[in-house]
Amino acid sequence: MTTYHELTGFQRDVLQAIAAVDDEPYGLALKAYLDERYADPIKHSRLYQNLDDLVDLNIIERNDVDGRTNAYTLTDAGRPLLQHQAETLTSLCNRPRPVADGSGHR
């Protein structure tokens, strides 16, 4: 089974995009979501190749919408990957941190 950290950073971002898009997460909606977060526009070929790879890994599934458009959803294997990462980040943000007193001593 694939782990979250075995995915590329872009594939991780694609998973987040699929979870974040409110309507059907179809290719162009995912591209728009990612384009808002990346400095340079995402190339269609990059997006669709990574979507195909994630489908092959059984992390997402592709569903035909209208014969030309596909919607993408997290699978039962993909959802826990993203959920675990979210929980890990939340727990790290909630950890108390030592306060420096300015003396240079720990």
Rank of each mutant, 00 (worst) to 15 (best):
L28M: 12
D52N: 14
G104M: 05
G67M: 07
G67D: 06
I42K: 02
V99C: 13
D23I: 03
S91N: 13
E87F: 01
A20N: 13
P25L: 07
L30F: 05
Q16E: 10
L57W: 08
A77K: 12
H44F: 12
G102K: 06
A19D: 05
H105C: 11
L81S: 07
D40E: 15
A86F: 00
L30C: 07
R95M: 15
L47P: 00
R46S: 14
D52I: 03
D13T: 06
C93W: 00
E24F: 10
S103F: 00
R68P: 04
A20Y: 02
F10Q: 01
E6I: 09
T88S: 07
L30S: 05
Y48T: 15
N50G: 02
I18F: 00
A100M: 10
T69V: 15
T90R: 10
Y38D: 13
L92T: 07
L57C: 02
E61I: 03
V21L: 04
D13F: 09
A77I: 14
Q11G: 03
F10P: 12
E24Q: 08
L30H: 02
G67R: 09
Q16C: 05
I60H: 01
L51A: 11
V21W: 02
D35M: 09
V14W: 01
Y26G: 01
T90M: 05
D56R: 15
R95H: 05
R79M: 08
G78W: 00
V55P: 04
L89W: 07
A77E: 13
L74V: 06
N70D: 10
R95Q: 14
A77M: 13
A86H: 04
Q49E: 12
P96W: 03
D52L: 08
R37C: 08
H105Y: 12
A19Y: 01
H105D: 11
H84T: 09
G9R: 08
D53H: 02
Q11R: 11
I42L: 14
F10N: 06
Y38N: 13
G78I: 03
L15T: 07
K43R: 14
E6P: 00
L89S: 09
D52Q: 12
Y48K: 13
A39K: 08
L81A: 09
V21I: 01
A20C: 00
P25W: 00
F10C: 04
C93Y: 00
F10M: 11
R68Q: 13
N94I: 02
I18C: 06
D101T: 06
M1E: 06
Y26T: 14
V65T: 09
Y48V: 15
T88A: 14
N63A: 13
I59T: 13
P41W: 00
A19G: 06
V65A: 06
